[in-house]
Write a protein that binds this DNA or RNA. Structure first.
Lengths: 237, 237
DNA sequence: GCTCAAATTTGATCTCTGTCAATTGGCTTT
DNA sequence: AAAGCCAATTGACAGAGATCAAATTTGAGC
């Protein structure tokens, strides 16, 4: 939204104690490579609502999300928006073949990324097939998720969409922070609507309905999943 | 649909005069590698309607489409279907990280594929980073297409969906067979509906409406694009 | 050419979700 | 605490596309 005010920590971070080490691209590197890799990336912070990169921008960097949540979206000429995904710690952004980003990304809440300039990163990959393999793995995983989301967008009802979203989001939280039935939802209702191909009103009504039926409880900044089994049933339909 | 009757040409085909050489994965191989590669793949034919592989099947092979069209789709438990793409000559199928296919694929009309057993193909890639790079490129391109399709499914009207589909399909035909305003549509209306997240009736009505307005002419086995400019306008909206 | 089945088109109606509008709630600023 | 603002909720209504149903066209055998 607003022009980015970016804070670059000049120095003093180490991959070896990186929060996402193991989950991220860098999991394919050994200790020696990691030390070299360290010099390629810079930690960069973004404040809530800041845009990290925009669709059609020339790709100058790749990004490894370290902390926070980002929304990834595409806009139609008339302003309609489709959120194509939410990025969480461990996600790797910026791959493309056109040399331009094919979606926009902005921070939902405070975000920290590990930013790599495109050229040196490309050179680093060159003779590290394992890293390329890892990147390929991530791309294929995303492709699979994208296809799942197509099914949701094209063939599921509003109720199913919302239930599926809540369960899927919880799943990701669990993978990141461990099991809990309290699901934080840092994104707005509008974000959820644009992710599910619905309107904000329909999302809101569906949340209310789920709450009335005792499936969830709407709490500040998220929901509490009271009846996971019923939610699963709604999602599968 | 029916159990597959597969014809394996025992021998006598050569990558060097393969129709998709250059467009496909193999474009990254040099002459020497190609000769070795030749022994890995077998040409296999599928008749119209035959299933090449099914979602959740253990992945035993990769496929390079040589001729024909395939529909790639996912089913919900209750039978609703979402077609996640159509595969044309040059497309590479079977990549996944779970070891299982994450969609089903069947032949629309007669199809020829170049089939590779998973293990030897994996070994062949092992020490050929260029091939891996090429596969990665294809995955990333598909990912980009998948995201475009999410926008269509989530945020476009029926008219826009159909117009976008016709233009996109024509584009692929052009890339494959050269420019023509006659667009063959080998897939059924139901397939188109399941690709666009619509019903067959809506697709049919939209075709009729486009024809009434002089944008297309519905011809045997396809359409003729009478007014590409107006179609573009409808698609962009 | 004739028959039967399947695909497509067309029509009538319904309903889910969108649109428009007003209200409520939460948070920040003063 | 009051004012102002934005996000979220709720209500009333409308419409795009789905559903149900029937007619028509197309294609495969015979």
């Amino acid at each position: 939204m607003k022009p980015s005010v970016v804070t670059i920590e000049p120095n003093g971070h180490f991959c070896s104690d990186c929060a996402v080490r193991g989950a991220a691209v860098c999991s394919s590197l050994d200790a020696a490579e990691l030390r070299e890799f360290e010099h390629l990336g810079r930690r960069v912070h973004f404040d809530s609502g800041e845009t990290v990169f925009s669709e059609e921008d020339i790709t100058t960097s790749f990004y490894n999300v370290l902390e926070g949540v980002m929304r990834l979206y595409k806009l139609l000429p008339d302003g309609r928006r489709q959120i194509v995904g939410f990025a969480l710690p461990g996600d790797f952004l910026g791959m493309n073949i056109s040399g331009r980003h094919n979606f926009s990304a902005d921070a939902i809440g405070a975000v920290t990324v590990c930013q790599f300039a495109k050229a040196p990163f490309g050179r680093f990959i060159e003779d590290r097939p394992l890293l390329l393999r890892r990147i390929n793995e991530l791309a294929i995983r995303e492709l699979s998720q994208a296809r799942d989301h197509m099914v949701l967008l094209g063939r599921r009802s509003a109720d199913e969409k919302v239930a599926t979203f809540l369960l899927g989001w919880r799943e990701r939280q669990v993978a990141l922070k461990g099991l809990s039935d309290t699901v934080p939802l840092p994104m707005s209702r509008q974000d959820i609507a644009d992710y599910l191909g619905l309107t904000i009103e329909t999302v809101s009504r569906t949340f209310t309905k789920l709450e009335r039926h005792g499936v969830i409880e709407i709490i500040h900044g998220g929901i509490s999943l009271l009846d996971p089994a019923r939610a699963e049933a709604l999602a599968a339909a």
